[in-house]
Nucleic acid binder design. Sequence first.
DNA 1: AAAAACTTGACTATTTTAGTCGGGTATATA
DNA 2: TATATACCCGACTAAAATAGTCAAGTTTTT
Lengths: 140, 140
Amino acid sequence: MKLNTKSRYAVMALADMAVFSSNNAVSLRDISLRQGISLLYLEQIFLRLKKNNIVKSVRGINGGYILVKSPKELKISDILLALDQKVKTIGCKKDSKKSCNGKSTKCITHNFWDELDIHINSFFENKKLSDLLKNREARI
Amino acid sequence: MKLNTKSRYAVMALADMAVFSSNNAVSLRDISLRQGISLLYLEQIFLRLKKNNIVKSVRGINGGYILVKSPKELKISDILLALDQKVKTIGCKKDSKKSCNGKSTKCITHNFWDELDIHINSFFENKKLSDLLKNREARI
DNA sequence: AAAAACTTGACTATTTTAGTCGGGTATATA
DNA sequence: TATATACCCGACTAAAATAGTCAAGTTTTT
């Protein structure tokens, strides 16, 4: 089980912004250099962050991106939602359009995966971007 | 983020066994019919469950599989471990053999993913197979 | 003997993932 | 006003993972 790199890099990049923006826009180029993430890939990621109103952009020279909310208010779940389209993580079966086991009732494991889903999502709901920055020994 | 179907089907199949074994071996054919999972696929899954000592097999007519531990003692994490080889779920970067960001220090998000990992794994550690069977409205 | 059921490795089609490419557009500053 | 910087955006692709099948067994009960 893993999150895709888009989500992980998004969290990383936004954390970087939280550290390095001093009311200025932060350019992808700088993030790319500091975090070692491909610039082209970052562009793709920020496109979606922008569409989902996590960041806003400033064009032209000295442009870049700015966090829409403060790190204290930005939930990690908001970030993941912007990239994954779904907070629903795990289901019983692949094709869950039909019922879990092709029958009318819920399958044995149905409630279990629901519980897990809640467990994981509440973690992301309760974490703010600013929480990542506390007590870190690691600086860029 | 999702678990692969092997893991999900394994949990489903073992839950089925917990319900339907009455001290008899349970055949994959029966599980396949009840749960709507391909027999051939179940074979592949049970091979690994057997290797990891989650089930033992009885060959020949009336054969099948038997849970090694009781459902009350069998942790979900044991099952996932048998199929995934790893409980480690998420890291900062794809190639985490090197450090997270190609530098010597830990990256900004490193501790965060570690926390998440613990959060998820403790869920699996604390759930027993028997827990899935409680209060279920859904029967096969 | 025959049938049921486990055993095992190899194989394959499909999907997902990670990431690149190319050709834009906007804007600050010299 | 030229130009460099930086955002914008859809399309594309190579590689890996996934889900599942196939074939050819072996073992054991009846």
